[in-house]
């Protein structure tokens, strides 16, 4: 674990009643890197992100830029630059695309209108489709557009660490490719990314480091290229050499 990690998760456990969904997981995400957590359905990936975000109570320690997040609320974490794009997107369906984006900058409202305007232009530049659809209600968008809006809303909060939960879920292959190229573009723009994916192949291709989570336990970790070459990972998650 590097000392200058942006996010450090130490021995974090999350319980739902008697069931432990995440068991003493430790991982780190470095500045300017894409880190991915892969694993099968029900491995606890979403739960882990919810705990980091503060949506679920957890045990252990979660540090962000050296500061413990454990007593901070979700909103305080957002204000510090930790932003989550959840699997369900959680958009404001009965509000317009423009309203959704503007509200993404709520935590940055003290930076002034000019700064929000600039970020909005950047987001529209990155997602021209959102500019076309800006007066449309979020609930009427297609799946791919919704994911773009969820990403755009998160970017409006000017995140330092962006956490993405299954960004490719339910999207057409062409849109998936677009989303992943946007993720790589974001890293170049200085945003660190923690990516949770079932699409292990794509996730390991774009990421620097990977962690494998199975039934709440961290079973493997290392540079993504090494993980992709690991026979066990290849067999289980990449569908190669199963025989």
């Amino acid at each position: 674990m590097t000392v200058d990690a942006l996010l450090e998760v130490r021995d974090v456990s999350v319980r739902y009643g008697k069931v432990e969904a995440v068991h003493r997981v430790s991982l780190a995400a470095g500045e300017g890197r894409i880190v991915t957590v892969i694993g099968p359905n029900g491995a606890g990936k979403t739960t882990l992100l919810a705990a980091i975000m503060g949506l679920l109570p957890s045990h252990g320690d979660i540090r962000y830029r050296g500061e413990s997040l454990m007593t901070l609320s979700v909103e305080e974490r957002v204000a510090r630059g930790l932003v989550l794009v959840p699997e369900k997107r959680e958009l404001f369906a009965s509000m317009t695309v423009a309203d959704n984006l503007e509200l993404g900058a709520f935590a940055r409202r003290r930076d002034g209108d000019a700064a929000t305007r600039r970020t909005l232009d950047e987001v529209y530049h990155r997602f021209p489709r959102l500019l076309e659809r800006r007066a449309q209600l979020a609930g009427t968008l297609s799946g791919g557009e919704r994911q773009m809006l969820a990403l755009g809303r998160a970017l409006m909060g000017r995140p330092k660490l962006l956490m993405l939960d299954e960004p490719s879920l339910g999207l057409a292959p062409l849109v998936v490719r677009e989303i992943f190229s946007i993720i790589v573009g974001l890293r170049q723009a200085g945003v660190s990314i923690l990516l949770v994916e079932q699409n292990a192949r794509a996730a390991l291709q774009v990421s620097d480091e990977g962690f494998v989570l199975e039934t709440g336990d961290l079973v493997l970790s290392g540079p993504s290229a090494e993980l992709a070459a690991n026979p066990r990972v290849a067999a289980t998650y990449l569908g190669q050499g199963a025989q």
């Binding site: 979700v74 957002v78 959680e90 404001f92 369906a93 509200l103």
Partner: peptide, 13 residues
């Protein structure tokens, strides 16, 4: 009112 979780994630307490 529309989406409580979404609002929290946008930083609205």
């Amino acid at each position: 009112a529309v989406n409580r979780v979404g609002a929290r994630l946008a930083g609205i307490s």
